[in-house]
Design a protein around this nucleic acid. Structure first.
Length: 946
RNA sequence: GCCGAAGUGGCGGAAAGGUAGACGCGAUGGUCUCAAACACCAUUGGGGGUUGCCCCAUGUGGGUUCGAUUCCCACCUUCGGCACCA
């Protein structure tokens, strides 16, 4: 009997042997292609939980697999070591952020090594090391020199608790809270540094050269938010030009008012004295708004009329100008034309404030509705509707009574209905048609809602004729009161233009382009594109980050730190103020500096540090040659890594990580590479060719793991109990890698049992061997099973389907357990099967695979050439995988009726004969005629009877 | 509201348009044991039955097909992200 499987012994043993033999040193001498596999670098928060292992175990398996396939694999790791938690820990515990971070990194290195991953530790890079951040600063300077970094005085989101500004991506939720600590952010006016990521907006929308998950591409596309439309100049009555952006120039004729953002610069000038007080009050309220925690997501529209009017340039209509907080100063031009008939926000605003709503685009479905109140027409109306084939029903509104609710389909029917209605109306009464047409039909003829003037005329007649309508300010408001109408009152279709002067009748598919062209010809407006994407705000008012290498001189102004003076070092002895304020502001030695341009002694350093996403935008380059040229003097023409090595390894072939970075890190790093390309530093357009996002491992209760829920799974204790191989394989077995799922503390037992059984199959002799049997046949069957498994496992690992990969290996092992007791034990086919099993386990469970491989093939002292992890991946032989017999599935009308063992190369003729001969099948054919027989894929036959 | 993902046994989950529930967990019964644990063997979607059988079942309702968990249409639910972007 061999020793029992004891991971506590073999795992440390192999860690040591692998390290000592240099097995995982990065090599370029293998015959195959290079493969740069990158997994998102961890933040050293202190403890690794199982959530860190979840992305890393499968990534490591892929790296190992690729190596067995002959690739030169580069699989580096490092630490994203700047950031707020270190500073907060410093305040709380009186430890310097550097010490805190380094202690955590040391602890995590140990935990990561216990996983047995094949990381290239010789290429480790830590972003808070001055030898690292000197290059982060160098990149900042290059971006500055390229005009991609600029400083702007602007209102920014500021977290009072973290004491720093946040990028737009880092502010979340309706209450606009800080991503990190949950505190509601405030607006602050500060001088801040930005990167011009917006220069690359269009290029960032192009994913054609990279294989990234759809959800990431969609998230980035939505985030960049490109819209095409037009900029159009409206003019105030006093002659001020008000520029607006619209995606719907085809709706210009329906603009019945304008809305400016409360902070729009023209508000001051345009506001009339009578409205001044109300406007100022509203502006104040709006500016405070982000500071107030909003309790509800209901966004009731608010706004104030500023007293002034503008002229709609397409039809010379005089329209009022309002301010409202639903218009953002930061998007477009900060001013809009409001087209309430075809924009839901404008529609809600107009309804609330009684502004006219004039449809200028036809519905594409041509549906119309008409409500005719009981008594407005004679009783013969119902029969007339039926005779004309018009759909109607009686509806009853308790306070208002009954009405004929007529639904009309198409222009033709709507027209004839208008005539029919008019003919049946009693004197002094009316009925409305809404949707495809917009009319009030009176006994003496219809009035149509074609303009704001028409709206006023209609209301005047209604008010005079029927007291009930006097509560309504506009025709649309009156119609809106009938609930049954609501779904046809507003739409945003691209339909045929109506009520639009010379453009009336322009079809929806060309309307936008036609109007834009005309606007340009008339000099009223021009084609324009807008993005939601804003420039990347990188300034952080914190100590623990990369100092921004800039100097402010009383004489020269903003002066960049010369390349040769880099790095600007963080003062290691800085005192972290308990308030969380930036220690650099109080560090006299850091702060005061001589101007590098004019020598003025009163210059000051920039005290802000960079967003840590700057560090992670280029870490995959740092790994190429970590701490490159440390201590040397740098210049603008240097290369930030070993070019020869970079040319070999770059770009990243596969990037694995979480999808939560979709609009931050993954967008920034693409921008960064494109900027480097334009500087001539790299020659490719995208940093990572392929990306795969894993899911989230949940707590045993199915919830996200968090300290507050008390459901965090710590890997250390599980490794102690079961070994790293069991933890690794269980994490891969739970389910599809990209789906995540709950950690089941009982489920892991199965993974451990599986490895125990592998151990037993490989090392233990038969327990109750069977006597006799056909050896050749048994070998053929075993080879069939082995090669089918190789095929399946190879396909699965290529597709990152580790759960089904492992279940295939379990099946093979289950088969071997039974086969061990037969004559096949000890045959060449048996040995081949054991080797294949071990080789296929090597990527997922590297320690047990190494141990078993060495027990079978080891020759004394371990050398890296002998390792299971450099053996070639088993070859799949399709001939051997083929089975001799199949189970022919026989269906009658698609229902399973019999299964018949048959030769694998059975012909359709033979299959028919077999199937029809089956008594189980014949039962279902009695009294029936065979209509058709389908023979599919050599494994199924379906008899169709009727 | 918009975008994305997903609904299959008691649970995690399998199924190139072709035997629904692979593999594993749990459960039940058995072997071993003084006993327990481990291990091993058997059973394990629901219902019926004449027990070498049948019916029902993949969120709901339709459709395409000889055949649908898979494709199409509509809807419901859950999770994740974005959210007044003109």
């Amino acid at each position: 009997m061999a020793d029992r499987y004891n991971p506590q012994v073999i795992e440390p043993k192999w860690h040591q042997a692998w390290d000592a033999s240099g097995l995982y040193a990065t090599r370029r001498d293998r015959p195959g292609e290079k493969f740069y596999l990158l997994t998102m670098l961890p933040y050293p928060s202190g403890d690794l939980h199982i959530g860190h292992w979840y992305p890393m175990s499968p990534s490591d398996a892929v790296a190992r697999y690729k190596r067995m396939r002959g690739y030169n694999v580069f699989y580096p790791i490092g630490f994203d070591a700047f950031g707020l938690p270190a500073e907060n820990a410093a305040i709380k515990r009186g430890i310097h952020p550097y010490q805190w971070t380094m202690a955590n990194i040391e602890r995590m290195r140990g935990q990561l090594r216990r996983m047995g991953a094949m990381w290239a530790w010789d290429r480790e890079a830590v972003s808070c090391d001055p030898r690292y951040y000197v290059w982060t600063q160098w990149f900042f300077r290059k971006l500055y020199d390229a005009g991609l970094a600029y400083r702007k005085y602007s209102p920014v989101d500021f977290c009072p608790k973290c004491n720093t500004t946040l990028a737009r991506e880092q502010v979340q939720g309706d209450d606009r809270h800080c991503e990190r600590c949950g505190t509601t952010v405030v607006k602050k006016e500060l001088e801040q540094w930005y990167f011009r990521i917006t220069n690359y907006a269009d290029e960032l929308l192009d994913f054609s050269t990279i294989d990234w998950p759809e959800r990431i591409r969609t998230a980035q596309t939505n985030w960049i938010g490109r819209s095409e439309g037009a900029e159009v100049t409206f003019t105030s009555e006093a002659g001020d030009e008000i520029l607006i952006f619209t995606t719907r120039p085809d709706t210009l004729w329906g603009a019945t008012f304008m809305v400016l953002a409360p902070e729009h610069p023209l508000v001051e000038k345009l506001t009339t004295p009578e409205q001044r007080a109300a406007v100022t009050e509203y502006q104040l309220q709006a500016s405070r708004q982000t500071e107030i925690e909003r309790s509800s997501t209901e966004k009731e529209k608010t706004g104030v009329f500023i007293g002034a009017y503008a002229v709609n340039p397409v039809n010379d209509e005089r329209i009022p100008i309002w301010i409202a907080d639903y218009v953002m100063m930061t998007y477009g031009t900060g001013a809009i034309m409001a087209v309430p008939a075809h924009d839901d926000r404008d529609f809600a605003f107009a309804l609330k404030f009684g502004l006219p709503i004039i449809p200028v685009i036809e519905r594409t479905d041509e549906i119309a509705k008409s409500a005719v109140w009981d008594g407005s027409v004679g009783e013969e109306f119902a029969a007339a509707l039926d005779a004309a084939g018009m759909a109607w029903e009686w509806l009853d509104i308790p306070e208002r009574g009954k009405f004929y609710a007529v639904t009309l389909d198409g222009a033709e029917q709507t027209r004839s209905y208008a005539a029919l209605l008019q003919a049946h109306l009693r004197p002094g009464h009316w009925g409305d048609i809404v949707g495809h047409a917009w009319q009030i039909v009176f006994a003496d003829g219809p009035m149509t809602l074609t303009s704001a003037d028409a709206d006023r005329a209609i209301m005047a007649r209604c008010h005079a004729g029927y007291e009930y309508t006097q509560q309504f300010r506009t025709t649309m408001e009156m119609w809106y009161a009938t609930e049954w109408y609501r779904d046809v009152l507003y739409h945003s279709d691209y339909g045929t233009m109506i009520n639009s002067g010379q453009f009336t009748g322009t079809p929806g598919d060309t309307a936008k382009a036609d109007v834009t062209q005309w606007l340009e010809a008339e000099g009223i407006g021009k084609f324009a594109i807008n993005y939601k994407l804003r420039d990347w705000l990188i300034s952080r008012q914190r100590y623990w980050g990369t100092p921004i290498p800039m100097i402010y001189c009383p004489d020269c102004g903003v002066v960049p730190v010369p390349y040769e003076d880099l790095p600007v070092l963080l003062p290691p002895d800085a005192e972290i103020p308990p308030t969380g304020e930036n220690a650099l502001k109080f560090d006299e030695a850091f702060l005061h500096v001589k101007c590098p341009q004019c020598g003025n002694e009163d210059a000051q350093r920039e005290t802000d540090t960079m967003d840590t996403f700057m560090c992670s935008s280029w870490y995959h380059y740092a790994y190429i040659s970590p701490y490159w040229r440390a201590g040397e003097t740098l210049g603008p023409d240097d290369m930030p890594w070993d070019v020869e090595a970079g040319d070999y390894w770059l770009p990243v072939d596969l990037y694995t990580g979480g999808p939560e970075h979709a609009t931050m890190h993954l967008l920034y790093t693409r921008f960064f590479t494109k900027a480097l390309r334009d500087m001539g530093i790299v020659s490719f357009d995208e940093p990572m060719l392929r990306q795969f996002n894993q899911g989230i491992i949940l707590g045993p209760d199915g919830n996200r793991m968090s300290k507050s829920k008390g459901n965090v799974v710590a890997p250390d204790e599980w490794v102690e109990r079961y070994g790293a191989d069991t933890v690794r394989s269980y994490l891969m077995f739970i389910g599809p890698w990209d789906m995540g799922g709950p950690w089941n503390p009982q489920g892991i037992e199965g993974s451990r049992r599986f490895l125990e059984r592998v151990w037993a199959v490989v090392l233990d002799p038969p327990q109750n061997p069977e006597e006799g049997g056909d050896v050749a046949e048994a070998e053929r069957e075993l080879r069939h099973v082995t090669h089918r498994t190789i095929h399946k496992v190879t396909e699965d690992i290529e597709a990152f389907k580790f759960n089904t990969l492992l279940s295939a290996l379990m099946e093979l092992n289950n088969y071997l357990m039974k086969a061990r007791e037969t004559v096949v034990y000890g045959t060449p086919a048996w040995d081949e099967a054991l080797d294949a099993l071990i080789l296929m386990l090597a990527p997922e469970t590297p320690h047990i695979a190494e141990e078993l491989w060495q027990q079978r093939h080891g020759q004394g002292d371990f050398t890296p050439e002998q390792s299971v992890h450099v053996q070639p991946w088993p070859e799949y032989d399709p001939e051997l995988a083929k089975a001799d017999t199949i189970t022919l599935v026989v269906q009658v009308n698609g229902k399973l009726r019999d299964k018949i063992e048959a030769s694998a190369d059975i012909t359709e003729e033979e299959a028919r004969a077999l199937a029809l001969a089956s008594p189980l099948v014949q039962k279902w054919l009695e009294d029936k005629t065979i209509r058709k027989i389908i023979f599919a894929g050599g494994k199924l036959i379906n008899i169709v009877v009727g």
